[in-house]
Design a protein around this nucleic acid. Structure first.
Lengths: 276, 276
DNA sequence: TTGAGCATGTAGTAAAATTACATCATTATC
DNA sequence: GATAATGATGTAATTTTACTACATGCTCAA
């Protein structure tokens, strides 16, 4: 909303521009203000304020109040703003955290498009699960492996292409291979997916839906890659992948019922017996 | 807000109750509605609607609109709700995602209490950085190591207690050891922290502030551990740690200026030359 | 049965939002 | 350089909206 105001500001006439500027400077005050007050505050007349509202695409002054409280009630909005070289450390940290939060929120909004139930059904019957990923995704794969193994399912991690290809080559029908790739463009991943599926195994891809890997996988969790305009932008999508695997892990634990829950409890207790 | 309405509903008179019910049923509509419209819609009079507003603790009808848009603009609140065994897969997944999002939001709110500037200052002058963590924190440590090493700083990962103790024993004054532990209760971590600081090295702890480790570290990033009431609760705090390290990494890259930015760019290009 | 107390509605009021129209300045056109 | 045209801005009237004061009617108890 405030961005919308900023955007039309240059096209506004002087008086209307003053109103826009005042709204931007005092958004909190403007949200609850009355038409007369705003006019007085900006040294203009009521109709001018109203014209300003219309010009930013609102139906009237009342809607301005609604839109403004809406925008402000997110005490902070986690919209992505690029980190720029002259940011202070604290600014940069805030921006990165916001980007991370936003990427999780985006993923949450997309959950309905993901094959969660199918994946849980297949994973719960898996003979073994292998998690494959290169570079940063390798760490996610390791983490996932560590998590799922506590359910009592044989798990392994594949962090280089030879390993991934070898696993695919010897996969059996009840094996599951989870492949993590941000862009899905490593040709070896698609090859491994084809190889594994041809042998009857299931390949779950957590990747860009417009990729060769996505086409060749059995199940795809679409993860849009945020175009990183700035070199400072970290891989927020990696966080989202981790959270997704967390969620899948819990869903699987539920689906497996008591035995899995027991194993979780036991493995937690094993740690707490000492300290964590 | 809506909860507030629900709470007073039983104490309301019939007509006022109808208003409350309508507001609960059509919150979106109610947010922008006019007094007359609500009265008509509920088959009652305007003063009754107004009385309803007063009874839920508002100053008038106008405030109802504000509170309502406020409540609705958080399309969902990411409050933590425990996963229970009879949840469906999709319910469980949503709950886990919400918990993850909330833990990031909490961390963001706590950023001001963290020694970001000091850490950046020390890290930018570090001869080498070692990231230490056990179990799940080990994966976070590996991920962080992978990230910081791309800045051109010598980095290593320590994923077991002997390694952590050995690093501490041979640490030099410009070395930095980053220790990750959710509870901070492993005695070896505190020992390592004492050992390393006594040799002039800096120990940055990302851990529970009420722990031995926190006391013995040079700098502490407090991370409150969410009491995991349910065995299904995953380690959301691990996500927050990752995001924090992401942020710290970006802040450090900024502080190091062009050389670090160049290295980041080069390492990104090295990947993009093939595919990621 | 009558009056106290409460729920509800009617009618009125003040203020706010919106509209219609007038004025002024600026620019374009002849 | 006068004049029409366009657009910005304000004034005043109108409508709508929120809110108040008061009246009606109902329920229950003495």
């Amino acid at each position: 909303m405030l961005n919308q105001v900023r955007q039309v500001l240059p096209q506004l006439s002087p008086s209307e521009g003053r109103v826009a500027q005042w709204v931007l400077d005092h958004p909190k005050e403007a949200a609850g203000a009355t038409l007369a007050l705003v006019a007085r505050e900006c040294g203009t007349s009521e109709p001018t304020v109203l014209r300003f509202c219309r010009r930013v695409g609102l139906s009237g002054f009342r809607e301005l109040g609604i839109r403004l409280t809406e925008a402000l009630s997110h005490p902070v909005s986690y919209v992505h703003r690029d980190v720029c070289p002259d940011d202070s450390s604290s600014d940069a940290v805030l921006k990165v955290m916001d980007a991370s939060i936003q990427s999780l929120i985006d993923m949450r909004a997309n959950l309905s498009a993901m094959p969660i139930d199918q994946s849980v059904a297949i994973l719960s019957k898996a003979r073994q699960i292998a998690f494959g990923g290169l570079g940063a995704s390798g760490h996610v794969a390791r983490d996932a492996c560590h998590k799922f193994f506590r359910l009592g399912i044989p798990c392994s991690t594949l962090v280089d292409t030879p390993m991934i290809l070898q696993f695919a080559a010897i996969a059996q029908s009840s094996d599951v291979m989870v492949l993590l790739s941000h862009t899905g463009r490593w040709p070896e991943f698609a090859t491994a997916a084809r190889l594994a599926t041809s042998r009857g195994a299931t390949v779950i891809a957590i990747t860009n839906p417009d990729s060769e890997l996505a086409r060749d996988a059995s199940l795809v969790f679409p993860c849009q890659v945020i175009e990183d305009t700035s070199i400072y932008t970290p891989m927020s999508s990696r966080l989202a992948q981790l959270a997704l695997l967390d969620a899948l892990h819990v869903a699987l634990a539920l689906a497996c019922g008591e035995p899995a829950a027991d194993r979780l409890r036991i493995s937690k207790d094993a740690l707490h017996a000492q300290a964590v």
